Simulated assay, not measured.
Amino acid sequence: MAASATTFAIGATLTRADIPVLCADLAELVRGRVGGVVVCDVAHVVHPGVVTVEALARLRLTARRHGWRLAVAGAGPDLLELVRLLGLTDVLFEVGRQSEQREEACGVEEVVDGRDPPG
């Protein structure tokens, strides 16, 4: 049996006060349904900021609490870059694809300082 999927859209503008309402709306949408994937459509977000990223993180937690996964769709370059800068790409976006430039999935890279003594 295929996993269930449903779509949940975020509007053009978002404030921190909107986050609890979005989470409650998502919980109402999935409550009592067999788990699957919530496709969170962010294509209409005009000026993504930290509040947008916070909303996505909280929506992801809400979905997980109800046995669902959250997949983000329609993210523009500004949102993608902001999520990358905050180090949350693997948390908020599907990790099923191979890590960029063969980095470790956790995003940790060892940096060697040429001034350090060997050993």
Rank of each mutant, 00 (worst) to 15 (best):
R64M: 09
D113P: 01
V46T: 11
L14Y: 06
D41V: 06
R64K: 12
R16P: 01
H66T: 04
V45L: 09
V39G: 05
R31S: 15
E54F: 00
V45C: 06
R84M: 01
L82R: 06
L22C: 11
L86H: 03
V37F: 09
L59Q: 02
G67Y: 06
S99L: 02
P48W: 00
D41Q: 08
A27G: 14
V72L: 03
L80C: 08
L85A: 13
Q98D: 11
L61E: 12
D41M: 07
A71I: 09
E81Q: 14
T13K: 10
D90S: 15
P20F: 08
L59R: 01
A55C: 15
A75H: 12
L59Y: 01
V83M: 03
V50D: 04
D18S: 11
M1W: 07
D116G: 04
L88S: 11
L61T: 10
A17E: 15
H47T: 12
L26D: 08
V50C: 05
G35A: 06
G36E: 04
L82N: 04
A43M: 01
G114D: 14
A5D: 08
D113Q: 04
V51G: 05
L80Q: 10
Q101C: 09
V53C: 02
D113Y: 06
L29T: 14
P118G: 09
V108Q: 13
A17L: 13
S4A: 13
E109N: 07
R115P: 00
R84S: 12
A55T: 12
R31M: 06
T89N: 12
A43S: 15
V45A: 06
A24I: 02
G49R: 01
G67W: 05
G32V: 01
H66A: 11
L14W: 03
R31H: 11
V91E: 10
L82A: 05
G11N: 06
I10N: 07
L82H: 05
A9V: 01
R16H: 10
G32M: 01
A71L: 14
V83W: 02
E94K: 09
V46C: 00
P77A: 11
V83E: 02
A2P: 14
V34S: 14
V45N: 06
I10D: 05
I10Y: 02
V21P: 00
I19T: 04
V38I: 10
V53Y: 00
L59T: 01
D41E: 11
R16M: 08
A73S: 12
T7P: 01
A24M: 05
C40K: 02
A43D: 03
D18G: 08
R60I: 01
R58Q: 12
E109W: 00
A17K: 15
V46A: 14
T7F: 06
F93D: 00
G32Y: 01
G67K: 07
C106F: 08
R33K: 15
V83K: 05
A73V: 03
